[in-house]
Simulated scan of single mutants.
Amino acid sequence: MITSIFSKSKPINFIVVFFIVLLAFLIARAELVNETITMGLVFNELGMFFVCLGSVLLLNFIVSKNSLTKYGNYEILLFSLFLLALPQSIGSTNILLANFFVLLAVRRIISLRSQLYVRKKLFDAAFWIAIASLFYFWALLFFILIPITLLLYTDNKIKHWIIPFVGVGAVFVIVVSISVVWNNSFFGVFKSLPELSYDFKNYNTLKYLLFITILFSFGLWSSLFYIKNLKQKKKAFRPSFIIVIVAAIIATAIIVLAPNKNGSEFLFLFAPSAIIITNYIETIEETWFKELFLAILFLVPFVLLFI
């Protein structure tokens, strides 16, 4: 039943995803918001919900525009289910915003496939990643995607390698200018050095262990087929698929490095994982196995809600 609904792009798919995202957001924010309800708080939470929903729609745009999957909407279903399985992933406003800007950057990076407006896209990608790093420092690791993409397209133009650093520099100049105006100092905005932690004790609960086990087991299994099938992709599209797997590796590194391991750091992994798992689902020929695979992914979030 699930496959028959999401195997093709339909309006009902977005309606289902909307309510899953809404449920995940309400659960996440209900745990965090203990303040007196005011209009300012309501508008702030509405803004964060639209950022969350916008991330889902942005993922759908990236996938459909660059043919990263076939014509279904499995990727946005999986993304929304990941949010519901771990509502803490949208508990941090800073990471929610950082992930949105990273997706904007990934959109520009993958669109380099067309080889049109290359300089503008490189600048935009670096600019958005730098903006993301202002909200969450380790999002800066996604900058690695830019030189990797240039290598994949064997781009030897020196100016194309310099432009991304100009994009980062532009953000730095803007931030320093704001710091001078508001804090009367050049580096007042940069309050502290980046932190990291290898303390994983927060994951030592049944809910986290189940979620991590399912996400990484399904993700790793799907990745094997994803990498195996890369050679079958059209040569022009192959770099886009490689970028997705590299993004997943970077997101995993962020989870390992995250100074506060409260679940929100997993958000960076959801989009690439959704694309990778979707590609595997589309290769499954047995209908019963595809239904079972999706049913597990669909039911797990609701089971975890009661743990």
Rank of each mutant, 00 (worst) to 15 (best):
D124G: 03
S133V: 01
I148V: 15
L116Q: 13
A125F: 07
L151P: 13
F123M: 01
I109C: 09
L206R: 11
A105Y: 09
V168W: 10
A170F: 14
F218P: 00
F137Q: 04
T149A: 12
V102H: 13
L103Q: 14
K159Q: 12
S177F: 10
F165Y: 13
S114R: 15
L112C: 08
L215W: 10
A130T: 05
E195F: 00
N156V: 04
F186T: 04
I214V: 15
K234Q: 12
V106C: 05
G188H: 09
R119D: 10
K207H: 15
S223Q: 13
A236N: 14
V176G: 00
T154P: 02
N204V: 01
V180T: 05
L104W: 13
F200K: 09
I148S: 08
L152D: 05
V176I: 07
L134V: 04
K234C: 00
G188L: 10
V171R: 06
S177L: 08
R113S: 08
K231S: 12
F186L: 13
K235P: 02
S177V: 02
D155C: 12
Y136W: 09
T154K: 15
A126G: 05
L220C: 00
K234S: 08
F200P: 04
I163N: 11
F101T: 02
R238V: 15
F190N: 01
N202D: 10
A132G: 09
K233C: 00
N204A: 11
S192N: 06
I144R: 14
K121Q: 13
L112V: 07
S217K: 11
